[in-house]
Design a protein around this nucleic acid. Structure first.
Ligand SMILES: [Mn+2]
Ligand SMILES: [Mn+2]
Ligand SMILES: [Zn+2]
Ligand SMILES: [Zn+2]
Lengths: 148, 148
DNA sequence: TATTTAGTTGCAAACGATTTGCAATTGCAT
DNA sequence: ATGCAATTGCAAATCGTTTGCAACTAAATA
């Protein structure tokens, strides 16, 4: 296992540099994203935002997510079934394992898989722009058990 | 235009065994799926169905896709952006590479990746129920070229 | 600081994909 | 052939998301 440095991405600077105005709603949303440990969807971000500034609208959340995605500040995930979920783009690349029972999202990374993907694409004559690897599963139950 | 609807016999039997009524719309949809070489979405299946039987409705296509998915006869893919796309479940498992320029869907399979996924899930204490691996890329351009 | 103005907002209405209620129809067991 | 539950087509509803628009505001300018 390796440590992940809990770097708080300097969103505002990044955005200013991209010519984006730093408004009140955006500050709120950015702060929520900056210290979100999970992968919230737009509605969840909206709810958290309202706690800080009750004037924020859901439209603005959607617009802001699209904007942040556009400048590469966040990643959008479309996990099976549900709405888009987001996470800051600052962290190292990783893929996800979704717990079908609880909805928990577990992150993992396999350099070997990444390499194999490149290899496959190359053989097919392609360059990978991005990819999506999601494992859907359930907690392994102890093999000999009597509990429900 | 066409004579008999060449429904894959095992396909229909599979459904009967699952207690599903074989109706005219279902026969049409099944035949379309059986010899679809691509990964059509509901609307595309609907269009193809209408050519055979103009009375079929889009609702029925959606309902049938859900039913077929439920009994495991087809797989649903939710590629980036677009609507759900489908393919018969009979073929060997494979994953997909989507050409970002043309929309082409290329199938591939890596036993090594499949194994690594299992390994990762196991380490995290999970059993994989299913997974999704999609590569999005563009055709590799020859390094020294003058063509468009 | 006051002025200016293009970017941004909240709201409501529109949107595309998919689902659903319902009355009419149909598969299929009898 | 009969009877009835399963299935259908249609329209309306739903869900997540986007958009038009008039009011507002960040931030460049004077
Ligand atoms: Mn993540
Ligand atoms: Mn396929
Ligand atoms: Zn990856
Ligand atoms: Zn696979």
């Amino acid at each position: 296992m390796n440590e992940t440095l809990p770097i708080r991405p300097d969103y505002e600077g990044e955005l200013r540099k991209a010519g984006v105005r730093i408004t009140r709603p955006r500050k709120v949303i950015l702060s929520i994203l900056a210290d979100a440990g999970d992968h919230p969807d737009a509605l969840e971000i909206f709810k958290r935002a309202v706690e800080i500034d009750s004037g924020i609208s859901l439209s603005t959340v959607y617009r802001t997510m699209k904007l942040l995605e556009g400048v590469g500040a966040i990643h959008r995930h479309a996990f099976e079934g549900g709405p888009s979920r987001f996470e800051p783009a600052g962290v190292e690349h990783h893929d996800h394992l979704i717990d079908l029972d609880t909805g928990d999202v577990i992150e993992f990374h396999s350099q070997r898989i990444e390499e194999l993907q490149q290899e496959i694409a190359r053989e097919l004559g392609y360059d990978i722009v991005h990819h999506r690897l999601e494992l859907y599963g359930r907690k392994r139950r102890a093999k000999a058990s009597r509990g429900g």
